[in-house]
Amino acid sequence: MGNVVISTPGMPLPSEKLFRKQTLVERLRKGDEAIHLLTMAGGWSIILITGLLVHHLWEYSRIARHQFGWHFLITSTWDPVNGLFGAWPFVYGTVVTSLLALILAIPIGLGAAIFLAELAPRSVSNALTFLIELLAAVPSVVYGLIGIFLLIPVLTAIMPAFQKFFGWLPIFSGTFYGVSYFSAAVILAIMVVPFIVSISREVLLAVPIAQREAMMALGATKWEVTWRTVVPYARQGIMGSVFLALARALGETMAVTMVIGNVAQVSTSLMAPGYTIAAVIANEFTEATGDLYLHALIELGLVLFAVTMIINALARLLMLSVRTDEVAL
């Protein structure tokens, strides 16, 4: 103590000649601020795009909103000739086909992801993943063609036998003509499986090896390690893949409209033809005569936006509740 000279006036420290204010150009050239600005612009663009989208949907559905109010959502008549528009059959069709598609796609997708990430040899896994990602890039109209020329004939062939056993259930009753909610859901399931597989595989592979080894060291079998450690650890990422699949299913237009039958009705039976929001917009947009018709279609877009938001929010709430349960045992 006492002998240490910290600094004395008039005796400049060597670092002092480095100390001067940097010009704006210098700071930009260093990168930090330029990147900050660029990425922030990207971030704000999300809000901008969403805002513009909602604003336009809201603005150009004005006439229909004023004419029908909330009844637009709950009435089932879609009669452009007489100027009566009710969205319920489309909302119903969209939700039913998407959820059914997820029910079909999640087990297959998750199973495939677990196989590719945990069990398959790396070379097989990589080859199959390449194929899966190829499938994700196939245009939806091609899936629609597959639906018409492959899926519907196959379903029509097997459905009578299936209905002999399960036909008594309201959801499988009635005559099956090929085009139906069920066909649409199957095609959607085929389309979203690649999303679930490829993202889930990535998150499963990212589970730390320490977690697996810790579980193995407790005497767990391969399956126990996978199902009780790896999958729970990756749960959030898997959920993310399911959300993406759901979003894709809700908004899918072309393939659905080719196999769903395009009938604006609400049926309990999945064997009956139906309609979805995206399909009706695509089909009727070019023939929409008159402002009310056009605005009703745009309001459908607004409804689809809302449905997507609500289902996503519900799914996230479900996920949160599952997580708290688990920590609380």
Partner: peptide
Amino acid sequence: TTLRRVVGMVFQKPAPFPKSIFDNVAY
């Protein structure tokens, strides 16, 4: 699996499961 129950192991880095303390021991 029997062997690994008889011969337990603790690793270099602590690797608790992302669960409750109770569940970790009960796993």
